[in-house]
């Protein structure tokens, strides 16, 4: 029985390139990012009615870009190790949590200076922002999780979480081009919430989809 299996597996052997896992991740990232970037002009602009560059020229636009790409990169940093059965790399995830805390602290200080004015916290789009970030991140998350089904994560939940953080971060960066908000506190609360929800979504889907 086992000998037959060995025969079958041996005849099915195809060469595997060095760093095959990383190459597949890069491919998924590139394909997914195309999808995520297309959500901007096709959905945010045409359907939701947000023209490109709502916060153009404001220093907070760059702040949002740095914050979201930073969070996404931390997810990307954790992903290859978490996709393997014999490795684990949690620190980027903890680091992402610490970064969000820091943003909240700085944002709260800014909000305090503006005398706790509600518009600083809520802007004009607070209630749709997290959902639109999830929507923007969805294509990237879908492609990543689909590709990751061929991996063997020690913890499918953690691998899904890292994929979600990566998608949420880059999705939010893409969303930032169509977002007119310019308050630090707004970003610290609503962007973080959108990215966190995407990460949570990745963890929940990963828990079932990435089982092996």
């Amino acid at each position: 029985m086992t000998d037959e299996l060995i025969d079958r597996l041996t005849s099915d052997l195809k060469p595997t390139a060095p760093r095959a896992l990383e190459k597949r991740l890069w491919l998924a990232l590139a394909l997914g990012l195309i999808g995520t970037l297309l959500v901007g002009p096709l959905v945010l602009d045409l359907v939701v009615g947000r023209p490109l560059g709502g916060a153009w020229g404001d220093s907070m636009f760059w702040g949002k870009l740095a914050y979201t790409i930073g969070l996404g990169s931390l997810g990307l940093l954790a992903l290859p190790a978490l996709s393997r059965p014999d490795q684990s790399r949690i620190w980027p995830l903890l680091f992402a949590g610490a970064l969000a805390m820091l943003a909240l602290i700085v944002g709260t200080l800014g909000w305090m200076q503006s005398d706790w004015a509600m518009p600083v916290l809520m802007g004009a789009t607070a209630l749709v922002c997290p959902w639109l970030i999830i929507l923007t991140a969805a294509p990237l998350l879908a492609v990543l999780l689909g590709m990751m089904r061929s991996f063997a994560p020690a913890s499918p939940t953690l691998a899904g979480l890292a994929a979600g953080l990566l998608s949420g971060g880059f999705g939010a960066a893409s969303y930032a081009f169509y977002c007119g908000e310019t308050s630090m506190m707004f970003m610290a609360v609503w962007y973080s919430l959108g990215i966190a929800l995407t990460a949570l979504l990745g963890a929940i889907i990963g828990r079932y989809l990435l089982r092996w």
Binding site: L9, D12, S150, F151, A152, W212
Partner: peptide, 20 residues
């Protein structure tokens, strides 16, 4: 014996996750 076979199958399907 089942577990041996499951492990060999996993090794085959997941061999790209082995870091050389």
């Amino acid at each position: 014996e089942d577990l041996v076979q499951e492990t060999l199958l996993a090794l085959h399907a997941k061999r790209s996750t082995y870091d050389r």
